[in-house]
Design a protein around this nucleic acid. Sequence first.
DNA 1: TTATATTGCACAAAGGTTTGTGCTAAACGC
DNA 2: GCGTTTAGCACAAACCTTTGTGCAATATAA
Lengths: 352, 352
Amino acid sequence: MITINDIANQVGVSISTVSRVLNHKSKKYRISSKTEEQILKAADELGYRPNELARGLRLKKTHSIGLVVPDIANPFFANVTQIIQKQAYEAGYSLIVCNTNEDISLEIEHVELLRRKGVDGYIIMPVGTLFEHIEDLVEHKKPLVLLDRNIEHIDANCVVVDNYKGAFQATSYLIENGHTRIAIIQGLRNTYTNNERVKGYLDALRKNGLEIDETLMVGKDFRKENGYIETKMLLNLENPPTAIFAFSDLITLGTLQAFLEESIKVPEDISLITFDDIDFAPYLFSPLTAVRQPRQMLGEVAVKLLIDDLKSKGRIERKKIVLDPKLITRKSVKLLTHARVDTTKINMINQY
Amino acid sequence: MITINDIANQVGVSISTVSRVLNHKSKKYRISSKTEEQILKAADELGYRPNELARGLRLKKTHSIGLVVPDIANPFFANVTQIIQKQAYEAGYSLIVCNTNEDISLEIEHVELLRRKGVDGYIIMPVGTLFEHIEDLVEHKKPLVLLDRNIEHIDANCVVVDNYKGAFQATSYLIENGHTRIAIIQGLRNTYTNNERVKGYLDALRKNGLEIDETLMVGKDFRKENGYIETKMLLNLENPPTAIFAFSDLITLGTLQAFLEESIKVPEDISLITFDDIDFAPYLFSPLTAVRQPRQMLGEVAVKLLIDDLKSKGRIERKKIVLDPKLITRKSVKLLTHARVDTTKINMINQY
DNA sequence: TTATATTGCACAAAGGTTTGTGCTAAACGC
DNA sequence: GCGTTTAGCACAAACCTTTGTGCAATATAA
């Protein structure tokens, strides 16, 4: 491994001079242009590569940021991750990616690891059930942004989408189409996203004077298996729902599998609406009506917030940013015949 | 920040003693259990967190590995990435993820960055058009595994799937179903995967005595837009194909969009087969026949190979591992009426 | 010519670890 | 009681940088 020492020896100067030249501080320290050239030449010839560990140790900066994500394989998170990676790279940062699998103890461990590695900042999509480790981060003034999921009590940068609104719109749309027995298959309980979606769902029901049936509020995590099992159960109810609102693309995947096995057709036999607008949604057997989240914006804003924080060294105040989702209507929701379509109401929903 | 120095002061011993205790070397260096306890207690109370930069500098080990991937947003790569992350974590390594966007200059930059950061090993899915930067890695004996794409001339660990076989099977399947005008929409030219797939396609045509029509061999990268544009062009041919073989899930996405716009139905109007068996494939408007790649295995083997290499310090010989893909037949291929189905041939293909 | 300013660079400390070696004091052998 | 072993730890170097300060040589001023 070539170090500045090797360069110094080759040129016959001290390592401090080499360092200054390599860091473009020749003028400031009055290094003659002759020496400068020699050093640059030697560095090139020897194939010098700065040791970022040593720099990081000295400078207390690693130019890397830690990304903590629940499930990279989930298309939604994968997309957001890609955006973040790109933005971070362009700002001069590398990404250390950690997958928590929605496991809080894994999340804690990963955050601990990232601290040991001395990352400059954190972008975290927290499980959200425990958060002392995150509080500790803000207490120590570590640049941090909470992504996709807010933690109310914590004074940290945060960018989320308005899950309440998304769920409210989706549920309202189903109601407008004559559905009264609407099931939800929830994601992980007590996460920010899930809570907000449940609230939106309930409020939409209440606003329309529909009764709330707890047996229709099922589900426990954002995974495919959850969607599959709960759908099977829902279909076996004595009085099954006429519509299902799935809280993630992966849940929808399980739901579709259950439908296939039971020969249930969407929307003829049952209506389906989903959070997360997967790329393939339009080409599914029944093109899916979905709540689309602004993935690109989510990632871009997260990185921007973090970089601002990094540059300002905490002098800048925390921001909580809420982005709007959008209901994309396709063909997976059936208009029940007894429904009176009230276009004014629909317009109201779209403007909401 | 708490250092071993702080612990040493608190307890009243030297930092070397602290270090040895914290590294479980008390016996080896005959530290009294009394001192040991005191140090452990102080470390806990002070909330000591080892500085991995300093350790890395001293030990020349960072416990992190660099992952270079063309496109994390692509479901295939996203899935592989997730597996790798998990396996790496369990082996005690963090993952620095770099997205090259199939851009060779970005790939080179990322590899350079990873070297500066001193990652212990590399898992790279190379663009493959240039590879001096990778050769340099093996020359310097850096633990490395090439994933999904091999580079023939390079003596590195490597795990790929048999793309030739996958393409051969898929093409043969189409031929068995009476198709003679089979288009391929290729991915990035001159990548290992693309080359092998083209070979498999051509060999299948030749073996069945079909003519090769260059106008049916289109496409230039693995993205959606490529699929969309090329499909539009293919549909406008004076003598359009009866089947399209798309070389990636994203290409298929574009193809489906084109089909939708042109009101083309699969498989009635045209047959479709794809590389990469996306999770949603069974539930598409026409459930997709696809070449499934063993994603889980791919990721697991890659990490295993790398870890072995890391542990053996280069004493172990390089391995090239080839995994089998699997043709999953669903309903996107139409049996052309004039075709004679030769079951013996089909069996032969499946055994291949 | 002498005093002062400037040029051009070297020295050394610091950042937090790990580890080979050496030193002191107690324990042991006889 | 003296020599030898052993226990228990400290010292200091090394890993590779960055940077404040200092010093010699040259240039400038008077």
